[in-house]
């Protein structure tokens, strides 16, 4: 069973190529790190799969559905910036998700909000940057989606919340779903990954099992990354 398939996926901005002929097969049941230096195409790849960019060439398929209405109900996407109207209250955002996504559990969302000490009656604009990120992550993870696309999910939150979030990702793990996480905080996250994709200049440089890589090089993924992408 293939969860995500990218066929020859290419995105060009004028003469600049952000993503070049990417072919990718992802199966369900994995937590996959999408790693690469700035400008390597991580966000572009995620946005193409989420349907926020139109590919120049090629196509992405989620459970065989080309990116579109059918794929969007299978994909839970977390952007790397805030995307909710700041005048909204947290509970309004939850109601919105509940209204549009059949797989959304508001009980689950409220539970996580309580654990992270966020009052659902607050307006988003009154929350700190970190708290806003947490709210968005909670919204994304309270869905029972097939593919989670998390773009820099822990960048703006403190280390204690980071640990909670990592545990939350593990507890939400399902065999029929995969999580694709783009991040540059590799050392924080590498223990929860089982596969990594190294992206460089818009191309996939490696797609491999994390423990396999450690066994081969006797190094952490973080140090391997630093060596591979040494400036």
């Amino acid at each position: 069973m293939i969860l995500l398939e990218c066929k020859n996926l290419t995105k060009k901005y004028g003469i600049r190529t952000a993503l070049s002929h990417v072919n990718l097969l992802i199966e369900p049941g994995h937590i996959i790190g999408l790693l690469g230096p700035n400008g390597s195409g991580k966000t572009t790849l995620i946005k193409l799969i989420a349907g926020l960019l139109a590919p120049t060439e090629g196509m992405a398929y989620v459970e065989g559905n080309p990116v579109g209405l059918a794929s969007k109900s299978l994909v839970s996407y977390l952007p790397d910036h805030t995307y909710l109207n700041s005048r909204m209250r947290v509970q309004d955002a939850i109601r919105l998700f509940e209204d549009f996504y059949q797989d959304f559990s508001s009980a689950c969302a409220h539970d996580m909000l309580a654990k992270l000490d966020i009052d659902p009656s607050f307006r988003l604009k009154s929350l700190s940057k970190g708290a806003k990120e947490k709210v968005q992550l909670i919204l994304a993870m309270s869905r029972q989606a097939k593919l989670y696309l998390l773009d820099e999910p822990i960048a703006g939150v403190d280390p204690a919340a980071r640990d909670y979030i990592l545990r939350m990702l593990i507890s939400n793990y399902r065999e029929d779903a995969s999580i694709l996480i783009s991040t540059h905080l590799i050392s924080d996250i590498e223990n929860i990954l089982d596969e990594v994709i190294f992206l460089q200049n818009g191309q996939i440089r490696a797609f491999t099992s994390v423990d396999g890589l450690r066994q081969k090089d006797h190094k952490s993924i973080d140090s391997i990354f630093r060596e591979v992408f040494k400036c």
Binding site: L52, K72, Y77, P79, Y83, L84, F100
Partner: peptide
């Protein structure tokens, strides 16, 4: 930015 939400809704 809000378009990121609107365009990922299943509509």
């Amino acid at each position: 930015a809000e378009g990121y939400l609107m365009h990922t809704l299943p509509v």
